[in-house]
Structure formats: structure tokens, C-alpha cells
Design a protein around this nucleic acid. Structure first.
Lengths: 203, 203
DNA sequence: CATCTTATTGACACTTGTTCAATATCGCCA
DNA sequence: TGGCGATATTGAACAAGTGTCAATAAGATG
């Protein structure tokens, strides 16, 4: 058993190392905020020198951006609507997948969202992009407009609805109270058509 | 005209200096994010030494918290419902005041919200507190429950509605499109009863 | 006008981000 | 199998910003 520092540097392929560091970055976010994720901490946790992180990511913010992008891609992939079935059912499944994803990865998800929403231009861009993708599915899956016609006004409404969903899921997961998962899903999915109707320009 | 440094230190009362620094802090937030607001920058801008800031606020995060609290109190005061009139009218006026406040102080408001929502425990606490106060008014002013009965479920709904409002106002102010201020107000105020109805547990 | 309180300063120690020449690991080929 | 070369990796040095504190001077008070 070596004393304190067993300095046998291990050499990975760039792809492997990148993957390791990004994965570790995402994992560490469960316990810390994005800007508490210092280069020092990550280097120590990964068992590498600080310099190596700069070799791979250039600087701290670029690393943060890479981590957020990594997690964002993961979220988007995990909540993709299923291939078959009725359009509206596919949406339901996708929304449910979103709720379950947040439930399962709560700390990391919250940390990510807060870090990205409060971060620099690029970070917010990624955050916006995720919302955009999730919202876009509404119009993409519901091509006939059974639920929501694709109008500029309704785009705004869906945007607001998405913000509401994020808040609701986080609030619910923090304290479910007496509301079950299915009831939450009911609230979320019921809210969209209600909003669309309420906001429809009167003729 | 003194050369570069006219070092005549001016001595203010603690209250004056505190006020000056907080006001300057809030003002500087219009052009920078919260964590780009370094002690260095603020000291230079205020024409004082860094040490003085530490004398008044202890450390950087404490200063941030004080700035955010200052701005939050301002927002709450400026959107207070009027004294007289119908309960529902008072709410309308208050919501309108909120929209106008955000419109007038846009850069600073966005910077504040992002900084606070993405910040530490205390910062988020202040952010939550503001939302809490704004939401609380709904139930306070509408004591008879004409609009929303005070139930746990509706508290959740109002919370989601508040998040939606924030998003809508920011999105609208960023790009109003063809939506007028009054239409936006219509959307916001129309959304609340619609949500409440949609979410009501069926009997 | 002298004195005393205390608002204010400036220099110093320390943490954290960033750079880069030097080092050592591992695949490859003789 | 053993040396060689490409390059993944390191560590020391530097920059910038945070936090500390004994020393200083502005302005009120008598």
C-alpha cells in the first residue's frame, strides 16, 4: 500500500478521458452548484492534474458548457417521444418521461437548470435550446393541431407553459404533498389546452 | 485638475455609504451579471478602496445578498396593490405594475432574477420570498375566493402560474411581436382562472 | 483649535484560474 | 522482446481576485 500519493499516471485515449471527465462533472453537480465545481476539485476527484482539464476543455467556462451540453443531450434523448402510437399519446409518454427523469436525477437536474439559467450567454443558450426542443415536440407531434395550432401567440403560450411545468415538477418533487405522480401529470397535460383556450383571441 | 489620483478621502455616515454602495450595485447589474460584479469593479466605480466594502458587507456573497435584497424590496414596494377599489381590480393593478416594473428596469431585473435563481441558498431564498409575496397577494386580496380558493392544490397552481408570468413577461419584453401590453396583461390574468378551473379535482 | 472617535485605506496572505515547457506512458515496429 | 516516437499528462510559475488587519486621517465635539 503506497503512502499517500501513488503517482502512476494512467494514459487514456482522448475520447475516454473526455467521457470520464464529463461524466464525473455531471455526477459532481448533484452535490454542488455549477460554480462551486472548481477545476481543483474536479482534478482531484478524477485523479489528474489541473493542467489536463485545460488541455481538454481550454478553460473553466468551456468545461462547464461541455458538462451542461452533455447533460442536456442526455435529457433530450431520455425524453424522446416513442416511435409508434397516437400523436397525443406520444406526447403524454414524453411528458411522463420528463417528469420521471427529473424525479430520478433531481439534485443534478436542479443544479444544471439553475447553473445554466443563471450562467453566461452560451450556458443560457443551451438551456433555451432544451426548452425549445421540448416545446417543439408539441407542434411536431401534434401536426394536425388537435391540441395547439402553430401560431406565434400559441408559441408564446407553450413557452410559458414549459416554464410552468419546470416549476411545478421541481416544486412537486421537493414536496409532493398529497399529489400523486399521475395527478401531477394530469395537471400538466390539462393545463396546456386550458391555457390555449383561455388565450385564444376572441372573434 | 489633479493628475490621476486625487486622493482626498471623503467620509460619509455608515447609512449614507451603505445606501450609495447598494444603489451603485443595483445600477451596475444592468450591464453585468451578478458574479461579474467583482469587489474590485465596484470599489473603483464608487471611488473607494476594496477594504471599505469588506468593512460594510463582510464578504462578496454577503454584498451580493444585500444588493439582491435591496432590489427585491424595491420590486415588492413598487408593485404593492393600491389601497382602495374592488379586490379583483386591485390585483389587476398590481399585475400591471409588475409588468411595467419589469419593462422599465429590464436589464437589471433579468440580471437580478438570473443571479438570484442561480445563486446560493440565501440568494434563492430571497428570490423565493419575492414570488411568495407576489403570490400571497392573490389569496390575500381575494379573500372571498372569487378567483382562487385557498387550497394546497391551488397554491401549487399559483406557484406555477407565477413562474409562467415571469417567463412570459421576459419573453414578451425581449420580443413583443404583435402582442400589446394590454394583450399581455389579458393573457396573464386570463391564464390564472383557466388554470384553476382546469386543475380543479373533478367531483 | 486640540482631541478623539471611527470611517477609510493600503499593503499583504491566500485561493483559484490559466499557461507552457518538460516528462513519461503506451502502441508500434524492428 | 525491447527500444522508439507520438502525444497524453504533469508541475511549477504566473495572473487575477478575495479576504485580513494594523495604520491613517476626516470630521465632530468640547
Amino acid at each position: 500500500m503506497p503512502s499517500v500519493t501513488a503517482t502512476t499516471r494512467t494514459r487514456l485515449t482522448p475520447a475516454e478521458r473526455r467521457e470520464q471527465l464529463l461524466g464525473l462533472g455531471v455526477r459532481l453537480l448533484a452535490d454542488r452548484s455549477l460554480d462551486e465545481l472548481s477545476i481543483d476539485l474536479l482534478a482531484e476527484e478524477a485523479g489528474i492534474s489541473r493542467g489536463l482539464l485545460y488541455h481538454y476543455f481550454g478553460n473553466k467556462t468551456a468545461f462547464h458548457e461541455a458538462v451542461v451540453r452533455h447533460a442536456a443531450d442526455d435529457l433530450i434523448a431520455q425524453t424522446a417521444p416513442p416511435a409508434g402510437g397516437e400523436p397525443l399519446d406520444r406526447l403524454l409518454v414524453s411528458v411522463a418521461a420528463y417528469v420521471d427523469y427529473v424525479t430520478a436525477n433531481f439534485e443534478g437536474y436542479v443544479s444544471l437548470v439553475r447553473g445554466a439559467a443563471g450562467g453566461n450567454e452560451t450556458l443560457r443558450g443551451i438551456y433555451e435550446e432544451v426548452r425549445e426542443v421540448l416545446s417543439e415536440r408539441i407542434f411536431l407531434e401534434d401536426a394536425q393541431g388537435e391540441l395547439v395550432h402553430d401560431t406565434p401567440r400559441n408559441r408564446l403560450v407553450v413557452r410559458g407553459w414549459a416554464a410552468m411545468c419546470e416549476e411545478l415538477v421541481i416544486a412537486w418533487r421537493t414536496d409532493p404533498g398529497e399529489v400523486s405522480r399521475d395527478e401531477l401529470l394530469g395537471i400538466i397535460t390539462g393545463a396546456l389546452p386550458a391555457l390555449v383556450d383561455a388565450v385564444a383571441p376572441r372573434r
